[in-house]
Simulated scan of single mutants.
Amino acid sequence: MCTEIRPVFHRLALCAARWAGRLCVCVSLLSFAGVSLFHGPATAQDLSDRTTKTKSLLTGEAGYRLAVFAEIPNARSIAVAPELKGVFVGTRGPNLYFARDDNGDGVAETVNLIGDDFKMANGIAYQPGTLFVADQHRIVSYDLDGFDGKTLGRPRILFTNLPDERHHGWRYAALSPDGARLFVAVGAPCNICKVSGLEGTIISIPTTGGAPKVYASGIRNSVGLTFHPDTNELWFTDNGGDRLGDDIPREELNRASEPGGFYGYPWYAGNDTRSPQFDDEEIAGDTIFPEFTFNAHNAPLGLTFDDGDALVALHGSWNRTIPDGYKVMRVEFRDGKAVTANPFLTGFLRSNGEVIGRPVDVKHYVDGSILISDDHASVIWRMVPDG
């Protein structure tokens, strides 16, 4: 494959060309002002008009300045690969990208489409030498020995029997602190319903492949999980049920201090709100309630820990009378407890109701800055600490 996507474009235009005797699809993205073909290293001046305008409307936490790492269509999950001088970026679709920052200045010089045959390339994780992809129906890995930043080799099949349902079928993945196991969130294939098998769980499998173990259950749809850098405990977000009202159920930030925990779904639609379908049923076993909650329909997704706090991306509501969310929040901790949340990056929802961005994932970059993916604006934002 020779598909290359520069981080300066926004709309797809397909052209067919022959290269090395094979049909190659060259994808270029169009700016709002017209066709913009850029052939040199990326700089701040190369950003599309739309991204430049969006950036000017966003407000970050004091002590940070906002920059742009790359423009990538439908950018979602992020996996930073320092040894490869770049970042893997998944999407809620067939495409997987690699954004290369060769000179380490925090701006991707090139963005390459390295895979386009996934059902849902949302769940990705990286450790030196290996890329893991949790697709809708299976989990695979790629040996990155000799990776040129443009083409993945053949996948190694790690597990093939994930529930093959598109509803909540976009996975999220993270590696255990020792790098021995891959943790994958498996959503429930519905709004609120009773689940079976691996549905509504977080599973783990050996990074070499094998049968999964259920680490946590009773989870509606987690699209963000990470391990605490000090305690090695698993923390994850969970989205509450829809169509129960503007203000219920509150959405969750959970801690899984040990395997085997049950987190309430579907008997709880989210937090302590009972699901109407099952509110007359007794719940077998103990339910673990969230450590912290967000407003209903805020859709908390990716998260990372930062100086003892948690940075959480709120993707934003889609079925609330007055839209809410659309920001990145800093959840402050005191004595190991989440106590309050303050804005880290805002402005994605304008006062007139216009949505100009929807944050998805949050990851630390190699230089100490923080990357934030945005699948609405198709951008990887970069929050750079002063100094």
Rank of each mutant, 00 (worst) to 15 (best):
M1V: 10
F9M: 02
L12P: 15
Q45P: 00
K55F: 01
L57C: 10
L58Q: 07
A62Q: 13
R65C: 05
P73D: 13
I78C: 12
A79M: 07
G86H: 03
A99L: 10
A99E: 09
D102C: 04
G104A: 09
F118E: 05
M120F: 03
M120I: 00
A121W: 01
G123D: 03
G123V: 05
Q127H: 00
G129D: 09
L131T: 08
V133N: 03
D143M: 02
D164I: 00
H167Y: 10
H167E: 10
A173M: 05
F183R: 08
A185D: 06
N191E: 15
G197C: 08
L198Q: 12
I205G: 04
A216G: 14
G218W: 04
N221K: 06
D238S: 15
G241R: 10
D246P: 08
P249L: 09
G260R: 09
Y268L: 12
P276R: 09
I288A: 11
F292M: 13
F294Q: 10
P300Q: 10
D306W: 15
G316S: 05
S317N: 07
S317V: 04
K327I: 02
E332A: 12
R334V: 11
V339A: 04
T346A: 15
L349T: 11
V360L: 05
H364L: 11
L371S: 03
D374Q: 07
D375P: 08
H376K: 14
A377G: 00
I380V: 15
W381D: 01
